[in-house]
Amino acid sequence: MLKLMIVDDSNIIRRKIQRECDLGVFEVVASAKNGEEAISLFEQFKPQVVTMDITMPKMDGIECVSELIKRDPSLRILVVSALSDIATGIEALECGARGFLCKPFTEKELSDALLKLTEGQHV
């Protein structure tokens, strides 16, 4: 099982992702509601995979991706955001994210994106 952390300021989205991830491949070890909390929980739980929102209070997702990649360059981060412009997706990838999933997403779209991430593909 891969250890996964969910980062999103919406409790509903965190729970939606958790329900999908509780199906066997991942162990959800932490949930954070902003970037600052994610950094703290990362140090504590050392997840291998992260889903990351962008628009969040305190520390946004782009900055948080950069901070997490500094700590663990092998970390697999899937950005899950409503910001659907190409430039934001490219910026996230340049910061070290391995994939980008646009909100709103279906369960299948999420599971497909996470599966590709675990197989080492960019999403």
């Binding site: 409503a82 659907s84 412009d85 430039a87």
Partner: peptide
């Protein structure tokens, strides 16, 4: 509200 506004950036840019 966040999703609708964020999705608008696909057309309106960053």
């Amino acid at each position: 509200a966040n999703t609708l506004s964020g999705n608008a950036r696909a057309e309106l840019g960053q």
